[in-house]
Amino acid sequence: MEPLLSLQIDDPHRTYQPGDELECECQVDAIDASDIQAIETSVLWYTEGKGDEDLGVHYFERRVPNDAEDGDLRPMHRFATVLPNSPLSYSGGIVKVRWCARVRLFLRRGKELFFEQPFHLGAVAPIRI
């Protein structure tokens, strides 16, 4: 059975302005604590469209079992970050900028899983072609 990864963004509208605080909580389930090698949580932007993908990490945290009190990384973990001034979310003609919060789970047997939740930064109007 696949482990369950959950990531929740606090604001249900998922729309933020630069300088706002983004708060998230993530949790892992349906897996043995001893099978988890590390969990990485990040807040990042990436590009989509015609060009090759670019990516920029704004917030990053890597936790290994030694970082948890009882070595168990499964319980709910909260993290927060103040969002930057740029780049803002954008849906252009051939360039798009997307923001998301992402959790990546590394298992002992070398496998890794990830899950992400998109959100919107800023109020740039989409381009209509």
Binding site: G92, V124, A125
Partner: peptide
């Protein structure tokens, strides 16, 4: 209002 700001990354730019 609502226009994209100048942007520059490795393979994409505004």
């Amino acid at each position: 209002g609502g226009v994209m700001h100048s942007f520059q990354s490795g393979h994409n730019a505004v």
